[in-house]
C-alpha cells in the first residue's frame, strides 16, 4: 500500500509530470492547479488563465491525450501524467508552426489572441479524435472555448481545413 497523506500545513507532495516531452519532478502543494503550476513554476505562460472556473477554455491543455481545463485540475491528482501545452504543439520542438497554428494564421482565426492557445489545444485534440464531421459538429464540440472577439466562423474554417487534410480529403495548409 502506498498511500500518500499530507495534513494541512505539512510539506508538499512529490509528483512527476512530463510536460511537452520533458520530465519534471516537482514538490507541489495540493491546492495548486495544473494551470498555475504550468504558468508560475514551469514558466509556460502560453496557457492562459481566463475565468479560472472551467467556463472559457483559455486554459485548455492536453493531458494523457485528452483536452481538459487545466484550471479545474489540482496538479497532485495528475501525478505521472503527460501534458502538452501550446508551447509543445510544434512537432519538431522548434519554431515551425503546427498545421493547426498555420491554419489559424491563414484563416485569421483570432483577433486579440487571448483565447487562441486554448482554441488550438482544443482543436488539435478534437481533430485527432476525428469528431469533425461537419461545421455543426465542430461548433458543438468547440463550445467549451469562448472567443469574445467573435472569431468563431474563422476558427471553424481553420479546424475544418486541418480536419479535411488529416482525413486525406486534401492537404492541410502549410
Amino acid at each position: 500500500m502506498t498511500t500518500t497523506t499530507q495534513a494541512r500545513g505539512e510539506t508538499d507532495i512529490a509528483i512527476t509530470l512530463t510536460v511537452n516531452g520533458q520530465k519534471h519532478k516537482l514538490d507541489v502543494a495540493p491546492w495548486v492547479s495544473l494551470l498555475d503550476l504550468l504558468r508560475e513554476r514551469l514558466d509556460l505562460t502560453g496557457t492562459k488563465k481566463g475565468c479560472d472556473h472551467g467556463q472559457c477554455g483559455a486554459c485548455t491543455v492536453i493531458v494523457d491525450g485528452e483536452r481538459i481545463n487545466s484550471c479545474l485540475v489540482l496538479a497532485v491528482t495528475r501525478d505521472g501524467a503527460e501534458v502538452t501545452t501550446v508551447e509543445g504543439l510544434s512537432e519538431d520542438g522548434g519554431d515551425a508552426l503546427h498545421p493547426m497554428q498555420q491554419a489559424f494564421v491563414d484563416h485569421d482565426a483570432f483577433q486579440c489572441g487571448y483565447c487562441t492557445p486554448g482554441q488550438l489545444m482544443s482543436a488539435v485534440a478534437l481533430t485527432k479524435a476525428g469528431r469533425t464531421g461537419s461545421r455543426d459538429e465542430i461548433r458543438e464540440l468547440m463550445s467549451g472555448n469562448l472567443c469574445r472577439c467573435g472569431a468563431y466562423p474563422n476558427i471553424v474554417d481553420a479546424i475544418e481545413e486541418v480536419a479535411q487534410g488529416s482525413r486525406g480529403d486534401k492537404e492541410p495548409a502549410q
Binding site: 498511500t3 497523506t5 494541512r8 505539512e10 491546492w31 497532485v76
Partner: peptide
C-alpha cells in the same frame, strides 16, 4: 483554503 491530501490505492 488550505487542505490536506490523501491518495488511497
Amino acid at each position: 483554503n488550505r487542505f490536506g491530501y490523501i491518495r488511497p490505492t
